[in-house]
């Protein structure tokens, strides 16, 4: 009995050590970027802990209000834009989150509860579309936004692109709706409720986890997207950028990257903090959404 117990203690200790090491690896880059955001000189990039601490990086980001410009001399064309980008991103993310949540939940409900002629065709076509790289349609979307909607370089065009096709991502929500018993619908129907009343007043209150999950994912998508936004908005329309484009320019743009690293770190904290807090506040629902979707396939 004794040896069993000691064996268990040893194995548990080993597991604790492994988990602790992994946690360090997992947290290190994040801690590093937070430390860097307080870094005073550009040379700090090469150190794990900055040589001097300053709050100027954050003040620089909001230079519209604070008046602090790039502390390393030479005013750059990107000065004073960050707050604008932040607002743009917030507007885009909130609007497209609202629209795409409605689209996703509606599509999922319709496919889960109604049996109509085009249902299977719709699902099959959606499956095939999902396998095509989405970038390709970006070329065409650029034309469409420029020539049909006249929204070239405008971040509102991003709202259309992010949310209009969102109905295709109905899988997880449909899996959830499928698990809600149909007896509830029938009971409501006998009581005289119409299908739309059933959806709004009975199914949706029951589907709180999946609503939160859909809202969360469809908010996080636009909030952290670089590829589509950079192609559609274009590098010349600086004031219409989203934070992703701006921060990417901070690290990789020509003759910007060399001196803007700490500002990037501060920006990354500003962008990452709210979404991380939101995520952990709603983590419970996110987990139930992911697991539910995985089991249903």
């Amino acid at each position: 009995m004794k040896s069993l117990k000691t064996g268990r203690i040893i194995s548990n200790t080993i597991i604790y050590i492994i988990l602790a090491l992994m946690s360090i690896v997992w947290l290190l880059p994040i801690v590093w970027i937070i430390l860097q955001s307080f870094g005073g000189s550009i040379g700090d990039k090469a150190r794990l802990i900055p040589s001097e601490f300053t709050f100027n990086n954050y003040l620089y980001l909001f230079s519209n209000f604070t008046g602090i410009t790039n502390p390393r001399g030479s005013n750059h064309s990107l000065d004073g834009y960050f707050f604008g980008w932040f607002c743009n991103t917030l507007i885009v993310a909130v609007l497209s989150c609202l629209i795409s949540t409605l689209f996703v939940l509606g599509t999922a409900y319709a496919l889960s509860r109604f049996r109509f002629k085009a249902r299977t065709i719709f699902m099959k076509v959606n499956l095939v579309i999902g396998m095509f790289p989405g970038f390709l349609s970006m070329i065409i979307m650029y034309w469409v936004m420029r020539d049909i909607f006249h929204l070239q370089g405008n971040y509102m065009s991003l709202v259309i692109i992010y949310s209009a096709g969102a109905g295709g991502g109905y899988y997880i929500a449909k899996g959830f709706f499928d698990t809600i018993s149909k007896n509830i619908d029938e009971a409501a129907m006998i009581d005289g409720a119409s299908k739309s009343q059933i959806f709004w007043q009975i199914i949706l209150p029951l589907a709180k986890p999946i609503i939160v999950y859909t809202v969360l994912t469809s908010f996080m998508g636009p909030w952290g997207d670089y590829v589509t936004s950079s192609y559609i908005i274009g590098l010349q329309n600086t004031e219409n950028w989203t934070v992703a484009i701006g921060l990417y320019q901070f690290t990789t743009g020509q003759d910007i990257a060399a001196s803007y690293y700490t500002q990037f770190a501060a920006g990354a904290v500003c962008v990452g903090l709210p979404i991380t807090l939101l995520f952990f506040a709603l983590q419970k629902y996110y987990v139930s959404g992911v697991t539910g979707g995985a089991v249903k396939g």
Partner: peptide, 16 residues
Amino acid sequence: IFMMTVAIPQFISLLS
């Protein structure tokens, strides 16, 4: 702790 990488937007964590 492991969930951190899901929460933080990928462009931030990967760029850093």
